[in-house]
Design a binder for these strands. Sequence first.
DNA 1: TCGCATGGACGTCATTCGCC
DNA 2: GGCGAATGACGTCCATGCGA
Length: 108
Amino acid sequence: MAVTGDETEAGSVAAGDLANSQMRNPTSNRLKAESGVGSLGSQKPLEDALQKRALRLMKNREAARECRRKKKEYVRCLENRVAVLEQQNKTLIDELRALKDIYQHKVE
DNA sequence: TCGCATGGACGTCATTCGCC
DNA sequence: GGCGAATGACGTCCATGCGA
């Protein structure tokens, strides 16, 4: 466990990640292209596009968190099930051994 | 003590899936 | 078909452990 949930919770983006994402994503250029806003004309469509993008990123960020939480829970459940089944298997093997033993003594 | 390997968590993008 | 939610893939950061 390196980074606790509390440290990076609730929209506090790690500085490195922020820089990273800005480096990788030529967002403003793409938005300009998408919104049809060039060097001239109203800034409104661009603002709308930026706002829409920010909202989408925020929602996706939260969705990703929830997705990871569910995945971890799922894995935990599977691990528990494995433990239970292994125990059952041991018990059944012991039972079988005991029954074989009883049978053997009766035959003799 | 330093450099490296590893693992966990994160954000973003691309894709898939289900609903309208 | 379009749209939003869910998820896989990827790159990054950070903490920790370990050997030189």
